[in-house]
Design a protein around this nucleic acid. Structure first.
Length: 552
RNA sequence: GCGCCCAUAGCUCAGUUGGAUAGAGCGUUCGCCUCCGGAGCGAAAGGCCGGAAGUUCGAGUCUUCUUGGGCGCGCCA
């Protein structure tokens, strides 16, 4: 809630208490915005909600409440009642324009809010296997998750960005084998490339890298030792590449949690979990394997934790991973997984529930699949490498800003066709440039030598144009919008805000000139508005991971 | 067969957690530079929200059924 919504909420709450002796919470009494702007800036619909309990016509309830509110909400110019029972508030100009100085004071921090209340959260995302380059599917996950982190951080959450490295499974063995094969190939020798190995070009490059660095000494080495070495080296080099590509994409991880970490010290963390589960009677043996009775916690079948060959299933160290997150002092966990792993959600949550962690400890957001499309036809392979299009290729092709914008602006709940041709065009088919262009125009005014330097004022009473009032209102709503985006973990809502904000600004730009040499006072106040709008837009673009150019 | 997700304008998508006449961009049609950046602005046409029933003052939003699509259903990771 912004300052006006808060005031309206509290006043209405008090008025209802006084008139009807009813205690209303935020849930009962949402402050809304009227669809038609001419009705007012804000609205409450309590009268309709109370109609049944009070056995009265909504209009009869609204009238006396509105009478009280007229005195209580001094920031409102008018408080009116409209059928079927809405109470509408139109704010005073000086109340709206006071936001300018608030923005100027907050600067880069404008939009920051305390809805997170300092709570701690670990967001785990991307978490690609370290066996190859990040591709376009990861790009959607990476952009979305990064924006969630930015939004939550701006909303007062204490966020830790974590990447879970799946380095304990068979795929790392395959990576090692594939590298050995390519290493031999480098020296003109034969070594079988495994059937399920990694045949892509990037694996070959890593093998060559090792060959050039270490020479041919591994050709004659002990096969077991050699494989160990190539597995470890391969993983490290793949991870470095992943980190480099993520950074290029504007994503920075703060923590890399390795699956193998949980195998260290005789699997002490894993065993601790298994012991706890055993004590709670959640486990049983069958067919030589150890099972978790996950069906007791909503799963559709029980899950194997230790296979009959004695090795652990993927789930087991991952339970330890999630428990460890909580033990490190993070009571709230967010994971972002691809749609192909959605069935895993239930068993992970069942595990935490069974171990006694409160419901809602782990939130899993599922990212639906991405199809790369060009001219309406799916592009499965990159022309260059013959493999899936990589994140890096995508960024080189269409630019980081455009890539991130496209991924973030669409809700991840639906599968997505990413049209590369559209993303590539730098015309108005592409909303990124529409938004960035607005920022450039603002910057251009801010540096216009014909306009005298901005002088901060106590009030800005000359900003009375309808579009100016709307801009002020949107700027006022920015912090609560950030909070709402963080709460719902939907960055796409922020791109929606940005688009409507810059649309309003472009429209304003076209109808009102800032520079009025014959009216220096109006010029200065409009300049203040532009500066506030510019700071707001810059911060909004930052939150979706897109740059705010001063010129383009 | 079972489970999760999705379906809104010709196309791509929003829809403030159940509110007022369902919005935007693209595309189409018509206008706007003697004026701070035309990568811009203004206007028009285009919908009954896949279908059916229900819940209530009120449903694109919630429930059930149904149709179509995506993704899963391993002692893989």
């Amino acid at each position: 809630m912004n300052q006006f919504e808060k005031k309206i909420f509290q006043s209405t709450q008090a008025a209802i208490k006084e008139l009807f002796d009813l205690d209303l919470t935020e849930a009962d009494l949402a402050v809304e915005t009227p669809r038609d702007k001419s009705l007012g800036d804000y609205a409450v619909s309590v009268a309709m909600k109370l109609a049944r309990t009070l056995r009265k016509n909504p209009m009869e309830i609204a009238e006396p409440v509105a009478d009280k509110l007229r005195d209580m909400v001094q920031e409102a110019e008018t408080v009116t009642v409209a059928r079927p029972g809405f109470i509408n508030f139109k704010m005073k100009q000086d109340a709206l324009s006071s936001v300018i100085n608030q923005v100027l004071d907050a600067g880069d921090k404008y939009g920051y809010n305390d809805t997170g209340k300092g709570r701690k959260v670990i967001v785990e995302w991307v978490s690609a296997n370290p066996t190859g380059d990040l591709h376009c599917g990861h790009a959607r996950n990476a952009a979305w998750g990064d924006c969630i982190c930015r939004l939550m951080e701006a909303s007062g959450w204490d966020v830790l960005r974590e990447f879970y490295v799946n380095d304990a499974g068979n795929q790392i063995v395959m990576l090692g084998e594939s590298l050995v094969s390519r290493y031999f190939e480098h020296f003109g020798k034969e070594y079988p490339l495994p059937e399920n190995g990694y045949h892509a070009d990037d694996v070959k490059q890593i093998a060559n890298q090792i060959a050039e660095r270490d020479g041919d000494k591994w050709l004659e080495a002990d096969p077991k030792e050699r494989l160990e070495y190539f597995m470890a080296e391969g993983k490290e080099l793949e991870l470095k590449k992943i980190e480099r590509d993520l950074n290029y994409y504007g994503v920075t991880m703060q923590s890399w949690m390795h699956e193998t970490f949980f195998y260290e010290n005789n699997k002490e963390r894993i065993n601790a979990c298994l012991d706890r589960m055993n004590e709670l009677g959640l486990l049983y043996e069958k067919d030589g394997a150890l099972w978790f009775k996950s069906t007791d916690y909503g799963d559709d079948k029980d899950r194997v934790l230790r296979k009959s060959d004695g090795t652990l299933s993927y789930l087991t160290p991952d339970i330890a991973n999630h428990v460890y997150k909580v033990e490190r002092g993070y009571p709230f966990l967010v994971d972002l997984w691809g749609a192909d792993h959605h069935s895993y959600v239930t068993r992970m949550q069942a595990s935490l529930k069974a171990l006694g962690y409160p419901e809602g400890t782990l939130a899993v957001d599922i990212i639906q699949m991405v199809r790369m499309v060009e001219d309406g036809v799916e592009v499965k392979m990159s022309k260059r490498t013959g493999n899936a299009i990589t994140l890096r290729e995508l960024c080189d092709d269409i630019g980081v800003d455009a890539a991130r914008w496209f991924f973030v602006s669409k809700d991840v709940a639906s599968p997505m066709d990413f049209d590369m041709k559209k993303a590539r065009t730098k015309d108005n088919d592409n909303p990124v440039y529409y938004a960035q262009y607005a920022h450039s125009r603002m910057a251009s005014i801010a540096r216009n030598p014909e306009i005298p330097e901005f002088r901060r004022e106590e009030t800005y009473p000359l900003l009375t144009d309808e579009k100016e009032l709307q801009l002020l209102k949107m700027i006022t709503e920015f912090p609560s919008e950030v909070g709402a985006c963080a709460e719902s973990r939907k960055p796409s809502r922020m791109t929606e805000y940005i688009v409507s904000f810059v649309k309003l600004y472009h429209s304003y730009y076209n109808s009102c000139k800032v520079n009025n040499p014959d009216d220096p006072e109006l010029t200065n106040q409009r300049l203040g508005l532009v500066k506030a709008a510019m700071a707001t837009l810059k911060n909004a673009l930052y939150l979706v991971g897109v740059s705010a150019p001063e010129s383009m």
